[in-house]
Design a protein around this nucleic acid. Structure first.
Length: 565
RNA sequence: UGGGGCGUCGCCAAGCGGUAAGGCAACGGAUUUUGAUUCCGUCAUUCGGAGGUUCGAUCCCUCCCGCCCCAGCCA
């Protein structure tokens, strides 16, 4: 197969403010090298938004000769599963990135994190609070009113230490006590109103098992994990912006081995889709899709199954850019990146999605011949392949109209067109069933036009793709369109209410040329004139199933649509 | 009405005081054995608005408007 891993013409990633900051730090000597990290929580599959973060973090490390760690932020055992951690590693690798020796888990640092928590207690910067969750919420105040101190805020160091140790020892049930940082209950920043550092969770952890019954919160674990790994630039999305003061506060009050800095960028939003783990999880669990890797899903696994090469995804992310402005990227940009990547590389084949039989009356019955077709129109090196031609062939139903409008170039009564790489044919007669449906066309061909050109220089307006009845292979083709029927799903309420009921169309009577039987699973080929398709894992021997990766640009469809108004 | 951010073409996005890059989309036209591709061309007298500073402002200042995030013992 053709190599789709070649570098696209435009650079995958350009300049952006994060890269400028890192570059500046390197030049000024603030850091000697760059170390970034991609820190997913293993509670779902990676999606386009993660792809942006992966390309940014691993991309920066690669470009500047640094390292990027893959760190699982596994601080909440009740939500995390090994299955997700496995899929995450597979997806990051598929995207083309390598963490080398640096596969880490926040849970690897539980012991150190615990020791530092005691340090905070000893220096008077943390205390054990017995306040119940709902009471704590009340005491925290509101966005406009300051919070009030917990009655347990001034316990002695000794008492706090004793209580915290007993929390660890498992003496208390879930929810009865937490460890809190002592900062400022009146802060305008809610994250600084004595944030919870540890909570009691008698839960089995995928990696640490039952060794712990208290678990650090994200806020407490993240920055310290960064420091342990000597991360120089901790890049995350905008919603963590007001966690940064807390991130810095903790680093300021702990004897950490390095001083990472956090930077935030705008998360990716894409029109006609949804990118929140909560919604994606619901799509899967409520069976709106067949799974996390359903080709309609914006997950990396779904996109891969659709037949999108990883270069195309990286190309898309590169085109999107990195900034701090809230934005929603048009899905058309993804489609465009996919086409631009596939067009120069994908082998061409012929497949008829909705077959219409064409009988060539002046072609000898029982006879077939072998013709040659190019595997790529712009690349002679892709070579030729043999295709069979015969008296009965199939063309696309859309390529015939009994009463065509003026701009219709394709087949219609009396009209001559070219069958790609074969002959000129002229439609002579329409065969209909009792209901009046067109079931076949009787045509004649011009034997002199073999290969697709007439010696007399005659021109035709259209070239049609086709397959020969003699050796066409039946196939199933799955056509996908947007999972949601509006660009901003959920804008009026529940996003799941905006699901497009027609996002999947299964065509079972398709006919494709036999060369397609050799296609490797997941690698897109172009069905001439219709789009890019990739063999699905559901294929059976002799019974291929194709996913449409993306359609070709179709100006005729556009003209028709605008004509209909 | 608290704190933190963001507003440059329909959608992304450069720009960092010297007179608005690029991509996607759209629209023309050329080439074409894919109505594809490729190619050429059009597409912001204007940077949320109003003032101000300056010889000069999208870039600096002031005020206003709009949008996003934060009140999990989620991340």
């Amino acid at each position: 197969m053709v190599d789709t891993e070649t570098t696209p013409t435009t650079p995958e990633a350009g300049r952006d403010f994060i890269r400028d900051i890192v570059q500046g730090d390197l030049e000024s000597g603030r850091t000697q090298s760059v170390v970034t990290r991609f820190p997913p929580e293993p509670n779902g599959f990676l999606h386009l938004g993660h792809a942006k973060s992966i390309c940014l973090n691993f991309g920066i490390a690669r470009e500047l000769g640094g390292a990027c760690h893959l760190r699982f932020d596994d601080t909440n055992p009740v939500k995390e599963e090994q299955l997700f951690a496995d899929s995450i590693q597979r997806d990051v690798k598929w995207l083309g990135f390598d963490w080398g020796e640096h596969l880490h888990y926040a849970s690897d640092y539980f012991e150190q994190l615990y020791a530092w928590a005691e340090h905070l207690i000893q220096t008077g910067h943390a205390y054990v609070d017995d306040t119940a969750a709902d009471a704590m919420r009340t005491l925290r105040g509101t966005l406009t009113e300051p919070g009030r101190n917990s009655p347990f805020r001034d316990r002695s160091v000794e008492e706090n230490l004793g209580l915290f140790r007993r929390m660890r020892a498992g003496e208390y049930p879930n929810g009865t006590r937490v460890l809190r940082a002592r900062i400022d209950m009146a802060s305008g920043n809610m994250n600084l109103r004595d944030p919870v550092l540890y909570r009691i969770l008698h839960a089995h952890h995928p990696r640490t098992g039952d060794a712990w019954c208290i678990y650090p919160t994200y806020d407490y674990a993240h920055g310290q994990s960064d420091a342990i790994e000597h991360i120089t630039h901790s890049v995350c999305t905008l919603e963590f912006e007001d966690h940064r003061p807390l991130y810095d506060w903790l680093l300021d009050h702990l004897p950490v081995p390095s001083r990472p800095r956090q930077y935030e960028f705008a998360r990716l939003n894409v029109s006609y889709t949804v990118l929140s783990k909560r919604h994606l999880t619901r799509l899967v669990t409520e069976k709106h899709v067949t799974g996390w890797d359903d080709p309609r899903m914006p997950t990396i696994a779904g996109i891969r199954r659709r037949g999108v090469p990883s270069v195309a995804l990286r190309e898309f992310i590169g085109r999107v850019g990195v900034a701090r402005a809230y934005s929603t990227v048009d899905v058309a940009m993804l489609d465009s990146a996919i086409r631009d990547t596939l067009n120069p590389a994908a082998p061409r084949r012929m497949g008829v999605l909705r077959p219409l039989k064409l009988i060539i009356e002046n072609y000898p019955e029982g006879q077939t011949e072998t013709l040659e077709a190019r595997n790529h129109p712009d690349n002679p090196d892709a070579g030729l392949r043999p295709i069979t031609f015969g008296r009965e062939i199939y063309v696309e139903q859309d390529d015939f109209m009994e009463n065509p409008p003026k701009k219709f170039y394709r087949l219609s009564p009396g009209k001559e067109v070219r069958l790609r790489y074969a002959y000129f044919v002229t439609c002579r007669e329409i065969v209909k069933d009792d209901a009046g449906n067109v079931v076949a066309l009787r045509c004649t061909y011009d034997p002199a036009s073999k290969g697709g050109n007439s010696p007399d220089g005659r021109k035709v307006q259209a070239t049609l793709h086709w397959v020969a009845a003699a050796d066409a292979v039946p196939a199933e083709v799955r056509l996908y369109s947007h999972l949601f029927n509006r660009p901003d799903p959920g804008a009026d309420g529940d996003a799941l209410a905006d699901i497009n009921p027609e996002s999947l169309e299964v065509l079972s009577g398709c006919l494709v040329e036999p060369a397609l039987l050799d296609a490797p699973i997941g690698e897109a080929v172009q069905f001439e004139r219709t789009g890019y398709f990739a063999l699905d894992q559901d294929s059976q021997p002799g019974r291929p199933v194709f996913n449409r990766t993306v359609g070709l640009r179709d100006t005729w469809a556009k003209v028709q649509a605008s004509a209909k108004g």
